[in-house]
Design a protein around this nucleic acid. Structure first.
Lengths: 251, 251
DNA sequence: AAGATTGATTCCACGATGCGAAATACCGCA
DNA sequence: TGCGGTATTTCGCATCGTGGAATCAATCTT
């Protein structure tokens, strides 16, 4: 083994390679064989086989009749716990955002075709917003939804929107597919999204991604009454939100 | 190293140990320190630290300010793909169940407080059932819901039911918490659940878990009109369903 | 149906790699 | 500022993982 400099110090080779395999399988559309994976990762076939076997015993990969491998159910179990962990660690950050903005802060994820709020710290103001934890909302009329969709491959997004449509919730809701895709491109570009009373009249909301581009796992948002929570109020906030989003995504 | 017999041949030690750590973190309520994990897994502190570092670089674990570790967001990314993979591999099994029973077969998971149907192969009969893919249904009035809740810790189940309540959907829906918990105990005991027109009048449904007790990730069900799909019709079916459920859970 | 081709699995000897014990650095606390 | 408890780093050694080649199985070809 010669490439001594190519790996960060302290990394465990076999673990690192096994994770490569898992992520390759996650990226793949369908099941993959040992040979293909060997090709994709640059590992020897024997090595790939041995690592996959280790993962298979633990349920992290599944092997079908044709000896093709795909992701197993063990990662679903981890994800469940990871989800709870994310919600828990997000709370202090949400509280910090409330402190800075005076408005309600939320954490949301994409579940199927809906956006679901999984965490919230409400504003201290007596006049505060909607959207309790557990609430399902459409992706196309919310800032969090835009952030989450913007990170998906375009074809998956269009498929989703074809299923759900873009029903108007308020007069400002974007109802045209092309216009919405343009909006998403902009969101992707600048790294944050805004909802200008598109989901609920009188409510404005800004959102940022949690996690790096291409693997956004959640969205962080702050929302308040449009008159109080106007553009100039959010200007300074967004940079902080983005920092927190990154931190949460890969702490 | 002496315990040469204790590990299945072909397993990769460091990978195996890293997975132990991940699962320990998944099991844990809150963040855990290196020392605690060393204790829990029986590994030397140095080893735990090195493996955690490898997992941390890849985002599978998160390290907080107090040097405590918890699960990171990387597994959430895997889960998305694992979910699709589960749905895809389940299809032929669902088809097999339709062939055997003549009725509609479903795959469902727990998402937040709802049961969501994620896969279906409809019965060839012209008279077939409700519940298209994507449909959210309450856990307490469905066989799949019972199966999924039965595998959760009781305190989490009661917390969930306190949030959702047990609204009656039909005259036979179980609406009493104590009665429902008894029902769940029975489901856990015998390994399958039935819905006697509790969700929809005239519809009977049986369900089994996907995955081993304690890590059920989904539920498999067959449902049909109560008069046609009666108890004697399901008797033989359930064993097959259980076999398929296990197979799907850890293929 | 037999051979050919592709791909998965097993084997094995080498040496890089991951191991653990102990030393060191760090942090919270008084 | 010093103390107790953790986390982290170090380091020499043995182990464990590695890759390439050989074997085995399955799928195409003609």
């Amino acid at each position: 083994m010669v490439e001594s400099m190519s790996r960060p110090a302290g990394a465990v080779q076999s673990l690192d390679r096994a994770l490569d395999l898992l992520e390759e399988l996650a990226r793949a559309e369908g099941p993959r064989g040992v040979g293909e994976l060997s090709e994709l990762t640059g590992l020897a076939q024997g090595t790939v086989h041995r690592l996959l076997q280790g993962l298979h015993v633990r349920g992290y990969v599944r092997r079908d009749a044709a000896r093709k491998y795909s992701l197993g159910t063990a990662s679903l179990r981890l994800a469940d716990a990871a989800h709870r962990s994310l919600v828990r660690t997000a709370r202090p950050y949400l509280a910090e955002l409330v402190r800075l903005s005076g408005e309600t802060a939320n954490l949301a994820v994409l579940e199927g075709d809906d956006v679901v709020y999984v965490g919230q710290v409400p504003s201290p103001h007596t006049l505060r917003m909607f959207a309790e934890v557990g609430r399902h909302v459409p992706p196309h009329s919310t800032a969090v939804g835009k952030v989450l969709l913007a990170d998906q491959p375009v074809d998956r997004t269009t498929a989703l929107l074809r299923r759900t449509g873009l029903p108007p919730r308020t007069p400002t809701t974007i109802t045209d597919l092309a216009a919405f895709l343009t909006e998403l491109a902009q969101v992707r570009e600048r790294g944050w999204a805004v909802d200008e009373q598109e989901q609920e009249t009188g409510v404005r909301c800004v959102a940022v991604p949690v996690g790096p581009p291409g693997s956004v796992v959640a969205a962080l948002s702050v929302s308040g009454p449009a008159d109080r929570f106007a553009e100039e109020a959010t200007d300074g906030l967004i940079a902080t939100m983005q920092r927190i989003g990154q931190e949460l995504g890969a702490g």
